[in-house]
């Protein structure tokens, strides 16, 4: 098994291992561990980990503006810029907020994704031509996945709030708008699994992408896929008593945990996978969620041309001047016939 396959199978067996752990644990009557202890632990690790890492990032100085932009910066008055250019290379705070909003809500940088390919071209002396073309599938997969996941998470608030918040009820209604199958199929669940499936498929089938993919890339995808699939199984095929699910969830958030007896092993598998995702979050690439807000290339105005940014901790550099260099190497230089400025 080569290096790349190994990374995929390590991640796959980790997810399968988590499923087996939860299943075996529940068969061994460890409901208290998997229903109460692990969720609390996962929530604590998630909160503390995210805060810790964000503060660690905030301790790194960012003295300069990094104008890695794809648009014309503010320049001479007769160089006109349209709104897109102003947003891509913001000169003031409102446009900067626009750039961040585009990035956070619409995944602007993924939208710029290009595909580079060699195409056959008989007119070309080499018989091939390098082309770059706009390739939106990654953006579409990513945005479908993120919004579907957001809706799925918000929908789950119906287990955590009593009475259920109006927003959640409305979302629930919209999500099950096409009332087919019973219980009504949630579109977000279908989109979530399809989009994660595409993102995984693309990682496996594209050779260049497979080359740079590690277990840490496959694991979150497989984990979220497993969460989505167990959730779909629980809702449509192997139903569990959701009143008992809500009793458990409400018990957790009111800090009076209570363990209903009537929950299936599949439910505990689903719950344990979610806990694993939350606990894994601060240690993983999933930290891009807070990270996008802390990206110096995105969250600073590009004003280098008219505001001077002085590094506040510039230290006096000890130069080694040419005169000193010559002082050190004068004799060998003369010996080798290299001209020197001072003979003595």
């Amino acid at each position: 098994m080569d290096f790349f396959k190994r990374h995929f199978f390590v991640a796959l067996s980790a997810v399968l291992g988590l499923i087996i752990i939860a299943y075996v644990g529940v068969q061994g009557n460890l409901q208290l561990l998997f229903g109460v202890v692990v969720p609390y632990l996962a929530a604590l690790i998630f909160l503390e980990g995210v805060i810790y890492r964000v503060i660690q990032w905030a301790r790194s100085p960012v003295p300069f503006r990094i104008p890695t932009t794809a648009a014309q910066g503010r320049s001479l008055p007769w160089i006109k810029r349209n709104l897109g250019e102003k947003l891509d290379n913001p000169a003031d705070t409102p446009h900067l907020i626009g750039r961040m909003a585009l990035e956070v809500f619409a995944f602007r940088s993924l939208f710029r994704n290009l595909r580079t390919e060699l195409v056959k071209d008989p007119d070309n002396p080499e018989g091939a031509r390098l082309i770059h073309w706009s390739y939106k599938w990654l953006w579409l997969g990513a945005i479908a996945f993120h919004y579907a996941f957001l809706v799925v998470i918000l929908r789950h608030l119906r287990f955590f709030t009593e009475p259920t918040m109006g927003v959640v009820l409305m979302l629930d209604k919209m999500d099950g708008f096409f009332q087919f199958f019973t219980p009504a199929v949630y579109l977000s669940g279908v989109v979530l699994v399809a989009a994660v499936g595409y993102l995984l498929f693309r990682r496996i089938t594209n050779p260049t992408l497979r080359y740079i993919s590690l277990a840490a890339d496959y694991f979150p995808l497989l984990l979220i896929l497993a969460i989505g699939l167990t959730g779909i199984l629980l809702r449509y095929f192997f139903k569990t008593d959701i009143v008992a699910v809500k009793e458990l969830a409400i018990g957790l958030v009111t800090l009076h945990p209570k363990l209903p007896a009537n929950l299936s092993a599949l439910f505990y598998v689903h719950l344990f996978l979610v806990c694993a995702l939350f606990a894994y979050f601060p240690f993983s690439k999933l930290m891009h969620a807070p990270g996008v807000f802390m990206s110096p290339t995105r969250n600073l105005t590009c004003n280098n041309r008219w505001v001077m940014h002085v590094n506040p901790w510039n230290y006096p550099v000890k130069f080694h001047s040419y005169a000193e260099y010559e002082d050190t190497f004068r004799e060998p230089m003369i010996e080798a016939g290299i001209p020197v400025e001072k003979e003595q």
Partner: peptide, 21 residues
């Protein structure tokens, strides 16, 4: 030839970061 840069030990943009958190 150079001293180690003395980087302040602090949270930069403290208010914004804490507001976000």
């Amino acid at each position: 030839f150079a001293e180690r840069p003395k980087v302040e030990k602090k949270i930069f943009d403290r208010n914004k970061v804490i507001a976000g958190l």
